[in-house]
Simulated scan of single mutants.
Amino acid sequence: MQAATYNLETRHPGWPARLGPLRVAAGEVSVRPIRLRDAGDWSRIRLRDREHLERWEPTAPGPWQDRNGFWSWPPQWMGLRSLARRGQCLPFAIIVDGQFAGQITIGNVIRASLRSAWVGYWVSSTVVGGGVATASVALVVDHVFASAGLHRIEATVRPENVASVRVLTKSGFRKEGLFRRYLDVAGDWRDHLCFAITVEEIGDGLVNRLIAERRAEWA
């Protein structure tokens, strides 16, 4: 799969966009731009899933309840949308069977001769293990290589986060190394594995690979 040509004058190539749906074990997965009205679902899931999420996310000031309450979403949404409009990130909501179920973001987009970014994601505890994260990564990575003009996507994950390591491995990312004491997570500086994939490595696309392996199908 070759990266499509794109207009260098476009301020935010590849965003907004709607991707999917794919059918996986957990249900029908699609990806769309984040919305202001996601606040209620976003807050409800994150407050409920504190134990599931907090141990893997960078340490931030303030109590979890405050940082993930209903009124903390609007400024986050505004900040992400502003970055997206400047072409610096592509923030998406993960939708399962029509319901908000997580986020996936392409961040720190650098263009010019590098054309690189990172991917980060989280999903509701109710769909973990059902192929949702893997399908979302496949949809978004294929999209940014084909429509956003990027060449390389990186992901960093704690070695202990077996589920996320499995998602990246199944998606075709290769492990490049270990970053020592890379991020402050859960109150301490944690080692992170670095994974990456480039456009030359995806062949006919990550989605087509999932379908060929019978782990997903177009819905």
Rank of each mutant, 00 (worst) to 15 (best):
R85T: 07
L53V: 01
L19C: 04
R37T: 08
L80M: 12
R44T: 04
R48I: 00
A25K: 14
M78K: 15
W56T: 03
A93K: 09
E57N: 02
Q88D: 09
H12E: 00
G27D: 08
S82P: 01
Q88R: 15
P58Y: 04
L53Y: 01
R50V: 03
L47M: 11
G79A: 13
E57K: 00
V31H: 09
N68P: 05
A93D: 08
D49L: 02
Q76H: 03
L22V: 07
A39L: 05
L90R: 15
W42S: 02
V24K: 10
R67Q: 10
E9F: 11
P13M: 12
P91Q: 05
W77P: 00
F70H: 11
W56G: 02
E28K: 15
A39Q: 08
G14S: 11
W15E: 00
G69W: 08
A93M: 10
R67E: 04
P33Q: 09
L8D: 12
G87M: 05
F70R: 11
R32Y: 07
R11M: 04
R67G: 05
R35T: 01
G87P: 04
L80E: 07
I45C: 00
R44G: 00
S30I: 08
G20Y: 13
L47A: 03
G27E: 07
D66W: 09
C89H: 09
P74M: 10
H52M: 01
E28R: 15
H12P: 00
E54D: 09
Q65H: 12
W42Q: 05
T59V: 03
R11E: 10
G62M: 11
Q88F: 07
R81A: 05
G79K: 12
A25L: 13
R85M: 12
P91Y: 10
W56V: 01
I34H: 09
S30T: 11
A17W: 13
W77R: 06
C89S: 15
Q76T: 05
R32M: 01
A25M: 13
D66C: 06
G87R: 09
R86M: 12
W42H: 05
W56S: 02
G40V: 10
R50T: 02
G40M: 12
W15S: 02
L8P: 04
W42N: 03
P58F: 03
R86I: 04
S82R: 15
T10C: 14
A39S: 12
P16E: 04
L8S: 13
D49V: 00
W15L: 01
F70K: 07
W77S: 02
V31Y: 13
W15G: 00
R44Q: 04
P13C: 12
R55L: 03
E28F: 02
A25T: 10
S72I: 10
G27F: 12
P13S: 14
R46M: 03
L53S: 02
P75D: 08
E9V: 11
